[in-house]
Design a binder for these strands. Structure first.
Lengths: 125, 125
DNA sequence: TCGAACCCTCACATTGATGTGAAGGTCAAA
DNA sequence: TTTGACCTTCACATCAATGTGAGGGTTCGA
């Protein structure tokens, strides 16, 4: 598919699809006329990228961890270097901390909303 | 305490402490000589801010949700407007999605590492 | 064959979170 | 009383993600 369709199906501006390519996150084929040609699977991939970006990971990191993330748990690893493994360990850690922080604060907000909106029951204190 | 101590205790450059103030996330007192004077409790608060920033939330949002986040579950709510509640609901949602995305990918990375490092047991498939 | 709707590259603008440095005030200890 | 370690404000720089527009090709249907 061409960039327009992928853009529509992922809700991502073409500008960003080109940017992700520039950052090495995706590498579409090229048609004879120079147009980018995207594989079907890139729909999921782009959504995954956007999710990770939204979660605060920079493209630099996403690029490193993407090859290890295949939904079908059919992990095709690209012969990892020790530095790469170290990066992954480190990022694993950071992600866990992020998750904890987000979860803690989300729960607090949820609790707050429960109380404030007096959800049919004024929060048995 | 003055900015230097808070900076050390939170591992945050003074520049950023001033920035957070400028963004309305913290509002230190001022000494007679013009120096900022930070309350003890701001140590935790700053770390919370950093955690949320690192998790991908912008200061604009953090500013809104911070008043609802008091660890002691002694939520002192500042008479919320409907828009504010809407913001919170929305952000609650975004945070949940972020958490899900991060958790999913973290688990995938963890699984990958387990396999690749052949953790004394080559991952019973 | 023309126009609309795509696509291309290039490049500059913006926004948020930061870094960094200049020019100067405060204060404690030597 | 001077030096050095703090602090102040102001301002410009940077980096990543994203917006936007110019200038120009391709394709397809009216």
């Amino acid at each position: 598919m061409r960039i327009g369709e992928l853009s529509e199906r992922t809700g991502t501006p073409p500008r960003l699809l080109r940017y992700y390519e520039e950052q090495g996150l995706i590498t579409p084929e090229r048609c004879a006329n120079g147009y980018r040609s995207y594989d079907e699977r890139l729909v999921d991939r782009v959504q995954q990228i956007r999710g990770l970006l939204d979660a605060g990971l920079p493209t630099r990191i996403i690029k490193q961890i993407l090859p290890c993330l295949d939904k079908s748990s059919t992990i095709h690893f690209p012969d990892p270097t020790p530095e790469m493994l170290a990066t992954l360990e480190l990022e694993l850690d950071r992600m866990t901390r992020r998750i904890d922080c987000l979860a803690r604060n989300r729960d607090a907000i949820a609790a707050y909303l429960d109380v404030v909106r007096g959800d049919r029951r004024p929060a048995r204190n």
